[in-house]
Design a protein around this nucleic acid. Structure first.
Ligand SMILES: [Mn+2]
Ligand SMILES: [Mn+2]
Ligand SMILES: [Mn+2]
Ligand SMILES: [Mn+2]
Lengths: 218, 218
DNA sequence: TAATTTTGTTAGAACACTCTAACTTATTAG
DNA sequence: CTAATAAGTTAGAGTGTTCTAACAAAATTA
């Protein structure tokens, strides 16, 4: 059984893993806001538990077991977020902090009950895929809104790096998952996009914003 | 802000407090399954935080602040149990262990949302009163079934010291809160009661069981 | 009352997790 | 290719929570 602290390290390792699955101590340290020596010693501990491949001065990699256990924590996090939104009436900008705590509850039945009540959801309220009970993730490859072109019509599929303020901004513009957005024009200078959707006929979205919106082509 | 561990000590102190509000280190130690020296040092820490009155070799007493903070943890515990039963479909024998963990979640809005969704419940699934947001408890004085007499008809109001096995036993006899029970006879030798209710015309309940059932006189 | 048992405290240590300071290895810039 | 910078490690310490061993006080028994 992993501790709350270990679970948070595993989750961070997982989400910082790119294509090659490598993570730098430094990046992990910054992401968790925990100093590098502390991270190093925790990596040795997780290596002893066969959850991380650790070699001095080399990038970190989760083992297959580590990846699975990380995915199961992420599963609990995302199921919780979905439950909070769908069954308790929270806004999508309110649920991350609560899920950050509830993901550590030790009670398989608690999460399987959530799963059942939600009718086995595939995505969390921010559009991120919910890993299955074996830790397998079946994620679609969405594209960033910022990479789309003038004239495209796209559908909102997910948001990246979901901070409170960003989600509140989206709320203020009535941007939500499933929304159909038409790209009217792209400013060549700063990549600001002018888009229209529903009763918003001309809304400007900065490049920062468009980088954080994942969409599907129609 | 109290830690998870401190919250568990406060809760234990509260529930071990009798009329005079005094608790022995030894009883607390046994209740928490934590050795006495550890308890002593935690009591000094809680005393430094003005949550406990501590004098060497004297019984422990919660301060007014300590009592309030304990009641607020118990509030979170009981709200959670009620939510798990009423909104998630758990049995009353399943919820205590989960609530033991969720009571430590730091998120006022999470618990106030539960309270709202449950329409401000006054009792938990075991009949224990839920303290209000100020830590005030308005508990009725029920009586033990074991103290009632032959011929009495009573209504199930609460269960004491709710263990898994005990609640499963009650389930197996279809005994639940609100149930009307008639006492047919009391065995003078061992105080076993023969009772009837609903479609159970003659059910024997040992003294141990009757000691743990709280009832209201009709 | 005196001996014994129970209850409670002190001292010292261990484990989990965190930090700063100092050092080493790897990467980047000139 | 060196010099400077960035990344990573080691050593040593601190906080929170727990333990065992030894001792002291209080309560109980004889
Ligand atoms: Mn989240
Ligand atoms: Mn977390
Ligand atoms: Mn309970
Ligand atoms: Mn608890």
């Amino acid at each position: 059984m992993n501790s709350l602290v270990e679970e948070n390290y595993l989750k961070a390792l997982f989400s910082l893993s790119n294509g090659d699955g490598e993570v730098n101590v430094n990046d992990l340290s910054k992401h968790l806001e925990i100093k590098m020596p502390t991270v190093t010693s925790m990596m040795k501990k997780l290596a002893a538990k066969k959850l991380v491949h650790y070699k001095s001065y080399k990038p970190l990699r989760l083992t297959a077991r580590g990846r699975k256990e990380a995915a199961l924590v992420i599963r609990k996090h995302r199921l919780t977020e979905m439950f909070l939104v769908e069954k308790m009436g929270f806004g999508w900008e309110q649920v991350h902090e609560i899920a950050e705590q509830i993901e550590h509850i030790k009670s398989p039945i608690f999460f399987s009950k959530m799963d059942e009540l939600l009718d086995y959801p595939k995505f969390d309220p921010h559009g991120s895929p919910i890993p299955d009970i074996n830790g397998k993730i079946t994620g679609k490859a969405y594209r960033k809104l910022s990479e789309c072109n003038e004239g495209d019509t796209v559908k909102m599929a997910a948001v990246i790096n979901t901070s409170d303020e960003f989600l509140k901004f989206l709320n203020s513009r009535e941007i939500h998952l499933g929304l159909k957005i038409k790209i009217n024009s792209v400013e060549p200078f700063d990549h600001t996009m002018v888009v229209s959707y529903e009763n918003h006929l001309s809304e400007s979205l900065s490049h920062m914003v468009c980088e954080r919106l994942l969409v599907e082509k129609e």
